Computed example of a mutant assay.
Amino acid sequence: MIYCRNIYKNYRTGKIDKAVLRGVEFTINPRDRIGLLGRNGAGKSTLIRLIGGVEMPTAGRVVRKMSCSWPLGFTGGFQGSLTGYDNARFIARIYDKPYSEMRAFVEDFTELGSQLHMPVKLYSSGMRARLAFALSLAIEFECYLIDEVIMVGDQNFQQKCREQFFEKREDRALLLASHSLSTVQKYCNKAVVLNDGIATLYEDVGEAISIYEAL
């Protein structure tokens, strides 16, 4: 399980502290597939970064009792001067996974070919997303964090993403921040609506979508 316990997050802009999250509290259980809904600027990406450990909360804490991916859609963890292969080698060492297996999966999943020999700083946003997806899927996390971007590239690659996340890993937990209500409705069994820094968890995805649309 992953517990979000009374999380607050403030950012200082000039002389003013802006409260983005105010007392967020909910739990991600094994096999939960939670859609994260909120208007632009509501704090969806901030919450996902906090859960993924990319940032620390101003107050409160995140307790992780299962392995958790970095936020897919957040590519700040790449070393830009290293190639796609070198980044894969680095991730393989961190998570103690054989590099040969990691390399084979990345080559097959990303379909980037010789571009994996290029420094990541030269990649387009779509290429970075492909690499981030491949590296995250290669580790086999118990919970995946996906920030906005769920499908990138052509239809063939999009189908591969659907198969990996929603079929082959249907037993994993998932937190998906998305403006695509149809995607949330189809693939999620719960939803969190973020509004004015407050997070409300709904067991009924349809009810959550109705609340979100009313905002």
Rank of each mutant, 00 (worst) to 15 (best):
K65E: 15
M66V: 09
M66R: 02
M66A: 03
S67G: 12
C68Y: 06
S69L: 13
W70Y: 14
P71S: 09
L72P: 09
G76S: 05
G77W: 09
Q79K: 05
S81P: 00
S81V: 11
T83Q: 03
Y85V: 02
Y85F: 15
D86L: 03
N87V: 01
R89G: 05
R89I: 10
F90Y: 12
A92D: 07
A92T: 04
R93V: 01
R93P: 04
I94A: 11
I94H: 04
Y95K: 07
D96C: 07
K97W: 12
K97D: 07
K97Q: 11
P98S: 07
Y99I: 09
S100F: 01
E101K: 12
M102K: 03
R103N: 07
R103E: 13
E107Y: 10
F109E: 04
E111W: 04
L112E: 09
G113N: 12
S114C: 03
S114E: 14
Q115G: 00
Q115F: 13
L116R: 00
L116P: 04
H117V: 00
M118I: 13
P119K: 03
P119L: 13
P119G: 09
P119T: 04
V120D: 11
K121W: 13
K121H: 13
L122S: 15
L122P: 00
L122G: 00
L122F: 08
S124C: 14
S125Y: 11
S125P: 10
G126I: 11
